[in-house]
């Protein structure tokens, strides 16, 4: 049975975001969600499921990783670590 590939995202009980957990084959979205339930939530991993057909996901090009990501390497000033926090501000 040749069926399209789907990417599965699960939100855990504590989590606020859906995290990518893997992929599976299914004929349609309903079947994909049911299969995701059976394959990826058997051990109480989640309370919500998203699926999206893999073909709808567009990815950055690994060959461009250098020009994409390396320039951020030496921009340490982008990290909010240079601010002096007043003593009154707690829990930061």
């Amino acid at each position: 049975m040749e069926q399209p590939l789907w990417e599965v995202f699960i939100r855990s009980r504590q989590g606020l975001d859906h995290k990518h957990v893997g992929s599976l084959h299914a004929a349609d979205a309903k079947m994909a969600i049911e299969s995701a339930r059976d394959v990826y939530t058997r051990r109480m991993e989640g309370v919500s499921i998203w699926v999206v057909e893999s073909k709808h996901i567009h990815a950055s090009n690994p060959e461009e990783a250098g020009s994409f990501f390396d320039p951020a390497e030496d921009k340490i000033y982008r990290h909010p670590t240079f601010y002096k926090l007043p003593d009154e501000v707690e829990y930061m």
Binding site: M1, H25, V39
Partner: peptide, 12 residues
């Protein structure tokens, strides 16, 4: 099972 996903489903 006819495919991995359904194999797990029916086993569940």
């Amino acid at each position: 099972g006819p495919m991995l996903e359904q194999d797990i489903a029916i086993t569940n």
